[in-house]
């Protein structure tokens, strides 16, 4: 659903369509990929506590994996399979944390409307600024390519 494609897995899936056959080997690949993802996660958390930077461990793990992928200029198949299998389940993984909102009823009761207003208002300039910069950037690029 929603959270699936936001991860861009759809785009990735197209490129790895040759992997879609279902075999026993695929499950093993999936587990090997999950194993690798967890190793990167642990490495990320280790680095985080070691040099005490405030970036989340999972993000450091992601950065490490990205560096590996870029240096090979190709993402390891096992990891790609695991990542593409996990991504569509994201909404399920998020439900328990969202349910924690039940412990924050006070905040919602007191400030719910203000928070809703803030979330709505802040979207408008964000979207406009993003679109404006793209428009100006593209115009500049066109000018320089026309010269």
């Amino acid at each position: 659903m929603v959270d699936t494609l936001d991860l861009g897995s759809s785009a990735v899936r197209c490129e790895s369509s040759s992997l879609s056959f279902r075999t026993k080997i695929k499950n093993e690949n999936m587990l090997a990929g999950l194993f690798a993802l967890l190793v990167f996660l642990i490495l990320g958390e280790a680095i985080q506590s070691w040099i005490a930077i405030p970036v989340p461990g999972s993000i450091i793990g992601m950065a490490l994996l990205l560096i590996v992928i870029i240096s090979r200029n190709k993402s390891p198949k096992n990891i790609e399979i695991a990542a593409n299998k996990l991504a569509p389940l994201l909404p399920l993984f998020i439900i328990p944390i969202s349910a924690g909102l039940i412990t924050q009823a006070d905040i919602i009761q007191q400030h719910g409307f203000k928070l809703l207003a803030i979330l709505t208002i802040s979207l408008i300039p964000g979207a406009l600024v993003t679109a404006l910069i793209l428009k100006m950037g593209n115009r500049l690029a066109n000018k320089s390519s026309n010269k």
């Binding site: 991860l7 861009g8 897995s9 785009a11 990735v12 490129e15 999950l34 993802l37 967890l38 990167f40 996660l41 990320g44 989340p56 461990g57 999972s58 993000i59 793990g61 992601m62 950065a63 994996l65 990205l66 992928i69 870029i70 993402s75 990891i79 790609e80 695991a82 990542a83 593409n84 996990l86 991504a87 389940l89 994201l90 993984f93 998020i94 328990p96 944390i97």
Partner: peptide, 17 residues
Amino acid sequence: SFFLGPVVVGLAVPLFY
């Protein structure tokens, strides 16, 4: 919730593409 960690690490794949 445990799976959120590996999902975030796996974001490296779409990011690369």
